[in-house]
Structures are given as structure tokens and as C-alpha cells.
Design a protein around this nucleic acid. Sequence first.
DNA 1: CCGCCCGTAGTCAAACTTGACTACAGATCC
DNA 2: GGATCTGTAGTCAAGTTTGACTACGGGCGG
Lengths: 213, 213
Amino acid sequence: MSAIRLLVLGAVRQHGRAHGYQVRNDLEYWGAHEWSNAKPGSIYHALKQMAKQGLLLAHEIAPSTAGGPPRTEYEITEAGTEEFLNLLRSNLVSYDQRPDMLSAALGFIVDLPRGEAVELLKQRVAGIEEWRRSVTEYYTPEEGPEQLGHIGEIMNLWVHTADGGVEWTRGLIKRIEGGAYTFAGEGEPFVGVLAEGEENPYATGEAHAEDDR
Amino acid sequence: MSAIRLLVLGAVRQHGRAHGYQVRNDLEYWGAHEWSNAKPGSIYHALKQMAKQGLLLAHEIAPSTAGGPPRTEYEITEAGTEEFLNLLRSNLVSYDQRPDMLSAALGFIVDLPRGEAVELLKQRVAGIEEWRRSVTEYYTPEEGPEQLGHIGEIMNLWVHTADGGVEWTRGLIKRIEGGAYTFAGEGEPFVGVLAEGEENPYATGEAHAEDDR
DNA sequence: CCGCCCGTAGTCAAACTTGACTACAGATCC
DNA sequence: GGATCTGTAGTCAAGTTTGACTACGGGCGG
């Protein structure tokens, strides 16, 4: 599963009630089109799908004042909130070497209580280390790692990446434990959504690096 | 585009002529099902698709001796080889933060001459550094990075990952320049394929880490 | 000697993703 | 004042991915 469901659920949740274009705009504001598959088609598809599955509630709305086709507004349901929290927690904990998942979860990490966030991140570290141990053992032939030839470099890459992931996670834990950011139940939350009509300072980024995708 | 095309093209190419199940087995031998979308459906789909596009040549074959439905064998074409090399080169150079792409390319890096491999990896380093520069500039608001709140951690993660990528790539360059591995035109190549009937020492890995995917 | 499981080989429908496209209202420019 | 541009909102067909399923032959236990 991709990061799209978490992103869309989280965006709708932050608005309370949102139509597709609003979600699309938020995700662009977060730069999500750069590090995830948050393209129009995927977003609208996810909205419809999750509405069908009872995670969102769809309201048909009269055509907007600002031109274009009739809109549909979505609201998150009980089940949707539960799914959102499940996705959020599991993406924070699990090491699946998919950066988009982690990035998406990171964007909503403050929706959890501070203590839980730290706890989950510690589990993440433990998980990565366990993965590292098992993978290095498993893929080391008896005749020594030379037997793998250049294929061994793939494992080398994984391990290097895993180590970097541990280091980064440890840093984040320290920052959170040190009091950074505002978490659930700590008053005025940080909201990364655009107010109606606010301009997007990070609008579609032709301005910066073409990243050769 | 995913890593599947490169993996399948490369596997067929190493065999000279292969049927789907052989490719599927090779990819499992390389552990590709763990770090890419190399599942049966995707593999057979890719084979058919690329045959339709003229990158592979399909031969209908009599049912195998070992039971099961009639097989199709594939051979790589001129166009397929060209595509293979293009994919290989571009995946080595471009930093798209998708580890599966890089891993796949790494598996075939020795199909290039040593000098070219080094050159491409150096381009990779340059590309990552350029990306890092542009991203840190672009996403730093005038009021200082605190304005981003916890969202800034996403960028932090990217940058950390990019730095790790540079470090790892530099290490690989050094190893290659130091004479490691056997590259194209240097005699007896390393082949990571299973001979007919050889058992797979890394068979489907229930044995090691469940990675919570 | 027969029912059952295992390995070989591949298919299929359902879901998801992609990128290009439509449609409309207001602003802008000669 | 009409042509064209821009921003809003979403659709669509084509392609891809997934996970479960089919089909067949051989070996093996009872």
C-alpha cells in the first residue's frame, strides 16, 4: 500500500471537511507530490475508494462559486479516524525502506501524544536493528562475503541505509524528548493546511531542482 | 516506472533465453522480492508487455518435462539491450530516493565497463549534492526553519538520507577504482543466476526477519 | 495403488497509478 | 468587447500491481 491513504485521511481530518481540490492543494503545500504518488488521479481515487469503504463520508455540494464542476466534500468517520491512527502508528514503527511512508507519517506525528511518539520511534529503532542483524547473518555465505561478488554491494547499500535511518531516528527522538514541537493535548496545534484563499508559498516547484525522476 | 523492467531485462539477458519461471527464480535468488515489486504477476506482465513492445522476443515452447502449463521462452532483442543499458545508466545516475531502482541497477553494474561505472557514480554524487542544495534553499522560509514546525523534519529526513547516499556512493567508487569486482571486458564475469536444477540457498525467506511490510 | 501434497508454470480480476484531458468562471489584454 | 489566459475542480482510458487462484505431473505414505 502506498502513502496516499494516510496522506488523504490526514488532510481531510485536519480540515474537518474538505473537497478533493483542497486535499490536493494541501498535499502540494507539503511538497508531497515530490516524495509520494500524490497526483490528482490518485487523490480522487483514494477519496472515492475510502468513501466506499466507510472511512470517509461524502457530501454532494452545489457547484462552487469559483467555477468548475460540482464538488464533493468529505468528512472523516469514526472508522476513518481509527484507520488513520493505525496507518500513522504502523508507518512510524515499521522499517519498510519506503521513504514516502515515513515522510507521510512524520507529517502527522504531532497528532499523537508526545510520549507515544517517542515510544513508537524507539520501537522503530529496535526494528531496524533487528532487521539489520537478521539480514547480515542471513546473507553472509559461509565462504565469506566475497562469494556474493558485486551483489554484496546491494546488501551493503541496505545496511548503510539502515544505519543512517537509526541515526536519524535517534536524533528525532532526542529533539522530541527535548521538548520540540507541539503534540496532541499540548494546546494550539501546528496546522500545516492552507486557509481558504491563502496563497501557497511552495507552489508547484518548477522553480527548483529538476530531480531527474 | 518501477524497477521491474530493468530486473526482468537483465535476468533474461544473463540467461540468453529464459522463461518466466526462470526469471522469477533468479529474482528471488537475488532477494529482489524483498526490495522491489518482483512478484509473479508483475514479472509475467512485464515479460508480455516488453515482448509486445519489441524489447523481447517470445518463443512458444512445448509443455515442460516437469509438469505444468506450456511455457514461453524469451530472448532479448537489440532494442531490449539498448533499453536495458539506458535503464541501467539512468538508474545509476539519478537520485530519485527509490532504493529499489538503485539496488536493481547495482545488480547489473558490472555489465558496464569499469570506467563508465565510476563516471556514472560520480555523476550520481554530483546530482545528489545539487538536489540537496536546491532543496535546502527552496524550503527554508525567510523567517527561519522554525516556521515549518514539525514539517521541517520531513526535509531533515530527506537531507539526512541524501547525505548518507553520497557517503555510500563515494565508498563504492573507491572500491571500484581500487579494483574490486569484474567488469565488462575484463574476462570471466560474475553471474548471479541459478544453473538449471541448482538449489537456491536464499529460497523464500520465511527463515529471516519478517520486516513488517 | 490411490489420495494428497509439493514443485513447476502461469493466469486472472480487482485495485491502484499515471498523465493527459475536460469544463467552467473570472481576470487580463489589446 | 472578444480572445485568451489562469485557476478551480475533477474525469478518463491505458497501463501496472497485487494476491489469490488454476493446472499439471511426480513422489510418497499408508
